[in-house]
């Protein structure tokens, strides 16, 4: 249980939710090119070749961040809630494993933004006296279950800060 890496994956719908988020936010990658075009369009510095190149580069980057990364992120996200601890493992290049002993948890809540709502997803936020941690993109029901399970476990072992 503690010995092995955590097993539970987050919801598959996370990939699409994250893709949508990244594709919206990623539109900002085109701002530099846009500004450059706007400034130079009627002057002699205007270079169509350079601009085409920049647009292609931005597009490749945009698609990579928007389509490929969410999948990799999902693939690497694991969590586990046991009687002793909340165990989180994440990151596809830099791996981070976080272990929060259950009796250190001060409160748990679930959050849902507009995109998560569209996909029926929620994230669970776990706060200790020092830090906050998040399990992203769980099915609404699972998120509620996880939240209830954690707060139940905390009540069982409650100690003062």
């Amino acid at each position: 249980m503690i010995n092995d890496i955590p097993e539970t994956r987050i919801d598959l719908k996370a990939i699409n939710a994250w893709r949508l988020t990244s594709l919206i936010i990623g539109l900002s990658f085109f701002v530099p090119v846009g500004v450059y075009i706007a400034i130079t369009v009627n002057t002699e510095v205007f270079e169509p070749l350079l601009i085409t190149l920049a647009v292609i580069l931005s597009l490749v980057f945009y698609l990579f961040v928007g389509l490929a990364i969410p999948k990799l992120r999902w693939k690497r996200w694991r969590y586990e809630v046991s009687e002793d601890a909340i165990d989180l493992l994440r990151g596809f290049i830099f791996k981070t494993r976080t272990v929060v002993p259950i009796n250190r948890v001060q409160h748990v809540d679930t959050n849902q933004g507009p995109i998560y709502r569209k996909y029926g997803l929620s994230s669970v936020k776990i706060s200790t006296a020092a830090t906050t941690h998040e399990i992203p993109a769980l099915d609404d029901e699972t998120a509620a279950d996880v939240r209830n399970k954690i707060s139940q476990l905390v009540r069982q072992v409650k100690e003062d800060v």
């Binding site: 290049i93 830099f94 791996k95 981070t96 494993r97 976080t98 272990v99 929060v100 002993p101 250190r104 200790t128 006296a129 020092a130 830090t131 941690h133 100690e159 800060v161």
Partner: peptide, 27 residues
């Protein structure tokens, strides 16, 4: 009993050498 959370950070180079970084957080 005062440790709030521990984190292990591993980058690909560390993973290859079987080493890892540890951070311990107290309030």
């Amino acid at each position: 009993k005062r440790i709030q959370v521990i984190e292990e950070h591993t980058n690909p180079f560390q993973a290859r050498k079987d080493i890892t970084s540890l951070s311990v957080t107290a309030a």
